[in-house]
Design a binder for these strands. Structure first.
Lengths: 94, 94
DNA sequence: TAATTATGTAACGCAATAGGTTACAGTCAG
DNA sequence: CTGACTGTAACCTATTGCGTTACATAATTA
């Protein structure tokens, strides 16, 4: 299990994409082709990176869509692992 | 962009987990703590691996939850990439 | 043969979520 | 002050993960 709470992908977008380029949330939302609300929700950790959004980010920022989805996976997984003990699952192998 | 259509994670569960162990869908669903329908939907590519399900699989089969989510990511991403051209997105960098 | 078991799936319901629009309040630069 | 940018609330829709119940079919077993 991962030790540290991974950052929400929205923080990464802010730090690595918007701030270095000096792009506003409004501008970025327009470029990405989504509503300002949609991007804002992601930036403020209220929504996730969907596969489609990952592709949008890859086009707008020249990054790999896979890396964005992986960030989201790490984030989701960490939170799911926190509830591991609550799941009543019996071992079949391993 | 990935060249070949990645298999749905359900196929991987079937081939790598259920069949080698000779476990039935009903038995596996009970062990995983989900309904038979839920597991069947995944096995027949009608539903995805949720983060919680990935943790369940990791407990039942002694695998890593991350690998299951990654399989799902690859599958989702490939389908999202197929629609890349339909997205109206403008470049901001890269 | 008759009964049981396993499987897929349809029809429901529920809760969550990704997306949209509109509208409002607050901040900040000119 | 004015205008731009931002967060967010309210409301809508479509989708999805999961549950239960029920049914038809196939396969196994008594």
């Amino acid at each position: 299990m991962r030790m540290h709470n991974p950052p929400h992908p929205g923080e990464i977008i802010k730090r690595l994409c918007l701030e270095p380029l000096g792009v506003s949330v409004t501008e970025a939302a327009q470029a990405l082709g989504v509503s300002r609300k949609t991007l804002s929700s992601i930036l403020n950790a209220r929504a996730s990176i969907s596969p489609e959004m990952a592709v949008r980010l890859s086009i707008a920022f020249g990054t790999s869509a896979e890396s964005w989805l992986n960030h989201q996976t790490q984030y989701d997984l960490w939170h799911a692992e926190q509830r591991r003990k609550l799941l009543r699952v019996s071992k079949l192998a391993g």
